[in-house]
Design a protein around this nucleic acid. Sequence first.
DNA 1: CTTGACCCCGTAGTCAACTCCGGGGTGACA
DNA 2: TGTCACCCCGGAGTTGACTACGGGGTCAAG
Lengths: 143, 143
Amino acid sequence: MATMNALSESDMTIGQLARRAGSDVETIRYYERRGLLPPPPRSGNGYRRYPPDAARRLRFIRRAKTLGFTLAEIGELLSLREAGNNRAAVKELARARLADLDARLADLQRMRDALADLDQRCSGRGTVSGCPIIEALDQETTA
Amino acid sequence: MATMNALSESDMTIGQLARRAGSDVETIRYYERRGLLPPPPRSGNGYRRYPPDAARRLRFIRRAKTLGFTLAEIGELLSLREAGNNRAAVKELARARLADLDARLADLQRMRDALADLDQRCSGRGTVSGCPIIEALDQETTA
DNA sequence: CTTGACCCCGTAGTCAACTCCGGGGTGACA
DNA sequence: TGTCACCCCGGAGTTGACTACGGGGTCAAG
């Protein structure tokens, strides 16, 4: 007889998985609800029993998050992988993400420069009247 | 007798103010609830009547938002101005904001670079297996 | 046999900054 | 007089990614 998909020695409880993958129990259950993690088999007491590669999937999610993907996009990525889909779809997703990051970067950079300029021009001494920062915000011409 | 703070010809309704300041009626009422805008006097029918300089304050808020200040910080800025406070406090707020922006910029830049690298290395052709993007997410070594 | 750590579930709360909803009054115009 | 845009209010809903809560079962150690 083959292994029959039974409960294995190497399986983990949700807490063990959380520790191993540097995650949190609640977060894992949340990902399951969101459909990012497949519902694992349960042992007799109803506890979730995760096979070792669950940690891999969790880390996949964590890494994708550090690249700025949303959970929705990560779900897409995951199912693209699952479906043995073509690379074009993956690349397209990455591209969209990249464009988004670029836009946000440009935005923040603009803010930063404007604020740095104002900060530099403000002596930090004296009263608020005449303060370049306040004046810039007050002026019609700041647009 | 002096002007007695009466209702003036030049006052605006909330809708007029919204149009003038490029804002929205609901947003203005929200800002009032948040304490960013002082409750204006009401005319006989209970309508808010805004003096002309209300638009200035609204634009102050909008500009501060484009510099990345949160509404809470804007409230602070506004009351610093109100209180005829010293410039040091304003500058300090700007500094904190600046540090925050810098941190977020560095973060996003890191993401962007990593993703751009992955994107460049992905041909966009073939199946998902072997795709550098997917592999990077899968690998232990991606950190 | 009790304590404490762990697990289960569904649901509600958090944060920011709005945005919308329902129900009802007001004002100008034809 | 009708109609339509505009105004009032309190309160609920939105988004994203969790995080917390309450109430209850389980399990290994002492």
